[in-house]
Design a protein around this nucleic acid. Structure first.
Lengths: 155, 155
DNA sequence: CTGCATGCAAAGCTTTTGCAGGTGC
DNA sequence: GCACCTGCAAAAGCTTTGCATGCAG
């Protein structure tokens, strides 16, 4: 690893503050996940890390991702194609916008009043006490919308 | 099976219209899923069916659920605790409201304009072409909100 | 009778666990 | 030097596949 990104650094400090050691393998997982714009599966993280750290084990990826998720630094991304992938968590509660072509994940936080209103309304109609919500949008990101850039991609 | 519910009947006809035979084991899976207010995992369906049909195999449950999902009669439910459970699909696109205590699933369809507006706004801000969305609310249903009915349940 | 459906067994994956050796601090 | 971390191997789940038999139409 040549240089540690600010986000990866923050994660490592957070791990240390929680009694974890900043080992080389953890740095690799942290750097990979902190630097990704796509949600990555444990196996993808493993492959990416292994290109730098020859003896990286898949088990270590699972254990590190588990810790990062516990600390709220990373979150699981649910998609129609599967729910094994993880991405750096946003600050505060945010919603996900996922590109169905390239996998780019973008967070958005706007329209919270709208959602609050919806929750109130549904609560009144259904009798439920609503505690949390998931909102995700799926589509094609700006780059993938442009046919010229993605000739293989049919819309 | 004493009597087939209207919904189960509709599903069986739909299966037949798609070249599937209405076997006893399929009837059992269909009746179980069509009659459930909770999302059920393949294993749960298997156990429920097996109480009636002794030689039911788990494999058959997987194969039947797969067919029902293909036909859009059943949909997978994603939850923090896992994404293996299925429930009867709603007519048209609807959103889910899930009880975190008893698992009761309620659909709601209101506020589509609100969500359309949100999608337009996010689309303009992000440059994404938005194709679909997932919205789920989690909370406690009317029954589970009442402490008297659920003394074991801490809120 | 014909061909789809079924259960069993086995294979294939993903994820977790046990453990002896290694490493950060 | 101590405690935590690691990779390996194995176990544990969950899901799919192959195949001979069974059953619906």
């Amino acid at each position: 690893m040549n240089q540690i990104s600010p986000k990866a650094n923050k994660w490592l400090h957070c791990l240390e503050a929680n009694g974890c050691r900043a080992t080389m393998t953890r740095r690799a997982v942290v750097e990979t996940l902190a630097g990704s714009q796509r949600a990555l599966t444990p196996l993808e993280i493993f492959d990416l890390c292994r290109s730098q750290y020859k003896n990286m084990g898949l088990v270590t990826v699972y254990r590190t991702v588990e810790k990062l998720e516990e600390l709220g630094l990373v979150q699981r991304v649910h998609q129609p194609s599967g729910c094994q992938a993880f991405i750096a968590a946003a600050d505060g509660h945010q919603h996900l916008l996922i590109c169905q072509n390239c996998g780019l994940v973008t967070f958005f936080s706007g329209e919270n009043e709208m959602i609050e209103g919806l929750m109130d309304q549904v609560s009144n109609q259904s009798g439920y006490q609503i505690n949390s919500h998931w909102l995700q949008l799926f589509g094609y990101c700006a780059s993938c919308r442009e046919p010229a850039k993605n000739p293989q991609f049919n819309r």
